[in-house]
Structure formats: structure tokens, C-alpha cells
Design a binder for these strands. Structure first.
Lengths: 113, 113
DNA sequence: ATCCTTCATCGTGATTCGACGATAGGTGGC
DNA sequence: GCCACCTATCGTCGAATCACGATGAAGGAT
């Protein structure tokens, strides 16, 4: 049952648009925080993995990266703290998936540059 | 003659599209490097200043930020090393402006997420 | 030539990051 | 209960970041 993880653990993308401004001091801080979370190749790679398998994978990420499990877990925490991904516990494993809202927000902020 | 700086020191945006791929290992590194450069509020602010005055300002940036001159210079160097901005010497002062190519590239990479 | 302005660089200290191994916490199977 | 598996967290180390003041280099102005 290796395909089980393809069932998304995270609900469908909430389609409501972001209303917050895309510039100003708060937006600067927000963009900087999001960019900082993306400011490492491993984290970009993790994000790409989660986008590719639109469903959420858990520790398969560790197998795809040349990093120790603890290091990957740390990167996942950074992405989660930034609000870019979400991690839902699914039995003994944890199911990570991207947070579409945050990704849209990032695109909006970068697009406003 | 305070309005002199409004004349752009940098040529008009080269309109040729970017041909490089927006995913893959190289793209991951590239996006991470660009994001890392943006991963600080002061640098986002600097970028916004340079976009607002589409012409290039030099040390006026120091006046707009609550940071020491050396600190601002350091942030400018980071942005310049990342290829996001350019600095042309204009007499005793240096004229910074955004590098439209890099900005477009960033938007393409983020958009591909 | 001498000063003054402008910016970059150096050196420093405090903080954070990135990576790892080791360890602890849950969960399911036996 | 006990054991195996998957994650998270802790502790640690070296390296990088961030901020600053001080110093240096280069170009006008007088």
C-alpha cells in the first residue's frame, strides 16, 4: 500500500484571496521571513518534492535528500514555522504538505516587487 | 540639483526572456540564493526603495533606514552579489538600481512553485 | 595641495544557522 | 507488555550572519 499517501491529508485549497497589503513595513517583514525560509537549497528541494507529489509525503523526503534525518526534520520545522507547509500526524508517520495560502501569499509579495 | 539622480544610470530593461529552466537542481540553487538575499527585512526595504524611485539612488538609502552606513553598505553588497541590484560609480557617489533581469528571474522561479 | 564628502572595507562581538549523532516520544504490531 | 518504526528534540560544533565603529580609498570643491 505504497500509494496510500497520495490521498491528500490536507483539505483542498481555500480559494479565498489574500486581502493583506503587498507592501509596507509589515509586508517587508513577511516577505523577508518567507524568503528566509526558502533561502536554502534543501528547503527549496523539499518544497518541490511536496509540490510534485501533490499529496503529502512524510519521511520519504529523508530518502530523497542526502541529509541526516534530524537535519531534514529541522528544515521541515523551519518551513512549518514560516507557515509554508503543514504537518499532520497520520498514525506513526507525519504527513507534510504545502500550505497553498502561504504559497499564494509569497507569489503575491514577490509579484509586487 | 537634487533631482539629478532621477535620471537612470542603468540602461533600459533588456526585454529578452529568460531561457533557463525554472526547476531542477540548478534552479533550486538559484532560487535559494535569490531568496536568501531577500531574507532580511532591511534588504527587502532597500529593494522597495530602489523600485519606488525607478531611478537609482545612492546613499540616500542610508537616510531612509535606521542602520549605520556600514551596515547598509553590507546589505547592498549582498544584494549585488546575488545579482539583484547593480551599482554604477557616478563621481564620488555610487548609483544603485535594480537589475530587472534578476527580478524577472526571481518571479519566474517563485511562480513555478 | 588640502579638505570634505561618499562609499567600501576591516575588525570585532553577539547571535543565528547548518549539520550531525544521540536521545526521547508516539504509534502500531506481536 | 514489549519491540520495531518513524519523528522530534537536545546538545554540540564550526561556519555564517548582523550590526557597529573605525579606517581607508577615491573623487570633487575651494
Amino acid at each position: 500500500m505504497k500509494d496510500k499517501a497520495e490521498v491528500a491529508c490536507c483539505g483542498p485549497a481555500s480559494a479565498q484571496p489574500d486581502l493583506r497589503p503587498v507592501e509596507g513595513a509589515d509586508a517587508d517583514e513577511e516577505l523577508a521571513a518567507l524568503a528566509k525560509a526558502l533561502g536554502h537549497p534543501a528547503r527549496v528541494q523539499i518544497l518541490r518534492i511536496l509540490v510534485r507529489r501533490n499529496a503529502c509525503v512524510c519521511g520519504d523526503i529523508v530518502d530523497e535528500l542526502p541529509l541526516a534525518q534530524s537535519t531534514v526534520s529541522q528544515h521541515l520545522k523551519i518551513l512549518k514555522d514560516a507557515g509554508i507547509i503543514r504537518g499532520d500526524v497520520d498514525g506513526p508517520r507525519v504527513c507534510y504538505c504545502i500550505e497553498p495560502r502561504a504559497l499564494r501569499r509569497l507569489k503575491a509579495l514577490v509579484g509586487a516587487l
